[in-house]
């Protein structure tokens, strides 16, 4: 539980600014707001679907800012050629959700 989050503070700041630019309501972004952002990555939809599965940790169909950071982290890593894992590795679980 003391593992450092893989999302580094610099990255978190970048992801948070994207999150805020998308107009969160009550600190949450709906799937409809996040979907076009992820589609912009040009990654295959089945990959993006898995990214969503892994990042919507409470499965409420919305992403809060930590969940959104997980999604963005996975998208950026996928664009660098790293495979998207089938399940969320513990270091990727936001400290607020452990």
């Amino acid at each position: 539980a003391d593992l450092p989050w893989v999302v580094k503070p610099e990255e978190k700041m970048k992801f948070d600014s994207i999150f805020d630019s998308l107009g969160p309501v009550g600190g949450m972004l709906s799937g409809e707001k996040v979907k076009p952002v992820l589609l912009n990555s040009k990654l295959p939809v089945d990959i993006l679907g898995r990214v969503w599965e892994l990042s919507d940790i409470d499965r409420d169909g919305m992403l809060d800012r930590d969940e959104f950071s997980v999604a963005m982290y996975l998208v950026y890593r996928a664009l660098e050629g790293e495979p998207v894992p089938m399940s969320l590795p513990p270091p990727l679980v936001p400290p607020s959700k452990r």
Binding site: S30, G49, G61
Partner: peptide, 13 residues
């Protein structure tokens, strides 16, 4: 509330 796709909470399914 949920995007098209029935009861799924995943907008990509």
């Amino acid at each position: 509330q949920y995007p098209a796709g029935g009861s799924s909470t995943n907008p990509f399914l």
